[in-house]
């Protein structure tokens, strides 16, 4: 990949003053009576990695589709690079690279041809596309698969090919909808590494995820979304600071006893969360909280002291766990 300067064409066509590339105000999308997105507002400056974290059905994908200019909003304002996707669909989409939740590669074409064909949709000439396709295949670590049929690729490879495809027009904004869902840990890490490189090159990343580790790894800032609304907004560290304690003690007493023993833990730490499979004790000092548990004569089957994560933030905000 070339390391493109931020002055790349199109970059400054949004809002040059603030450098905002995406702004949404009171965004609403309803299907029949149901509101998938129910009044979401946010704005994203150029070069930021912005995440939408939430469970399945929270309205993340619908928000992404509205940003991507493929779904019309029901109400609210939306501007991408200063353009309204409802009136300037092709112009908005020309600015973007899109990695959809479900791969929609052309399985009947070969790997490299998928990139060439996609580049044609942007009116790019073959003289540009051929070297670019090779460059992107290398970036996606798929050079030796260039002539393979797409069917022959693993899930992680298909995902990387989809990302390579989304970069064919050298977009400055990349939309990634659940980029690593369904991938094994190794494939996820390779993908994160590639995304991180793009971020280093100044590409604005907008991604949805229901994995808190992914959000922590990739996002400068995120909104926690549930039932179509924003529950909280901030950097991962900020959110944890505001909505959780520094550490968490996870105690397992066996599924039968978690609830009853939970009552006996009252007063330890800042806050307790009794879940069917474990009890969470939120405390600034996990070790000393654990000592207090022992001092009360309670013997958990397993215990673990860890740092707070976005999962805890989500649990606190919604009373539900993120991945069901």
């Amino acid at each position: 990949m070339h390391n493109h300067a931020l002055t790349s064409s199109g970059m400054l066509t949004g809002d040059p003053q603030s450098g905002t590339v995406i702004s949404a105000a009171n965004l609403v999308k309803t299907y029949g009576d149901a509101a998938a997105v129910d009044g979401i507002s946010f704005s994203v400056p150029a070069g930021e990695s912005f995440g939408l974290l939430g469970p399945n059905g929270a309205g993340k994908s619908t928000t992404m589709k509205m940003i991507g200019g493929v779904t019309r909003r029901t109400a609210g304002q939306l501007s991408i690079m200063g353009l309204d996707p409802d009136t300037h669909g092709p112009e908005v989409r020309a600015h973007l690279g899109v990695v959809p939740q479900q791969d929609n590669l052309d399985e009947e074409l070969r790997v490299r041809d998928n990139l060439l064909v996609y580049g044609r949709y942007f009116g790019l000439p073959m003289s540009y596309l051929k070297p670019k396709a090779d460059e992107l295949l290398e970036f996606a670590q798929l050079t030796d698969k260039a002539r393979s049929k797409v069917d022959a690729l693993s899930g992680g490879m298909k995902r990387r090919l989809t990302i390579a495809r989304s970069l064919i027009n050298e977009p400055r904004i990349l939309l990634l909808d659940e980029p690593t869902t369904g991938l094994d840990p190794q494939a996820r890490h390779i993908l994160w590494d590639r995304l991180f490189r793009l971020k280093e090159q100044g590409v604005t990343l907008i991604l949805t995820t229901h994995y808190m580790d992914e959000a922590e790894q990739l996002c400068d800032r995120l909104i926690v979304v549930d039932k179509g609304r924003i529950m909280a907004e901030g950097s991962p560290a900020q959110l944890i600071r505001e909505h959780s304690t520094r550490e968490v003690v996870e105690l397992r007493f066996g599924s039968e006893r978690n609830a009853t023993i939970g009552a006996q833990l009252e007063g330890i730490g800042e806050r307790l969360e009794v879940l069917p499979d474990r009890v969470l004790v939120y405390a600034h000092d996990g070790e000393s909280a654990l000592e207090q548990v022992s001092a009360r004569g309670l013997r958990p089957l397993t215990s673990l002291v860890r740092r707070s994560s976005l999962e805890d933030v989500f649990l606190r905000l919604t009373g539900r766990s993120l991945v069901d």
């Binding site: 070339h2 064409s9 199109g10 066509t13 690079m81 300037h88 092709p90 112009e91 989409r93 020309a94 600015h95 949709y121 942007f122 009116g123 790019l124 000439p125 003289s127 540009y128 070297p131 670019k132 460059e135 064919i168 027009n169 050298e170 977009p171």
Partner: peptide, 20 residues
């Protein structure tokens, strides 16, 4: 402006949209 040919750069979004 279209940067194709002047290096291996894609033309800008406005050109892409107009062509599309």
């Amino acid at each position: 402006e279209s940067l194709v040919g002047a290096g291996r750069r894609a033309h800008g979004p406005a050109v892409a949209a107009a062509k599309a």
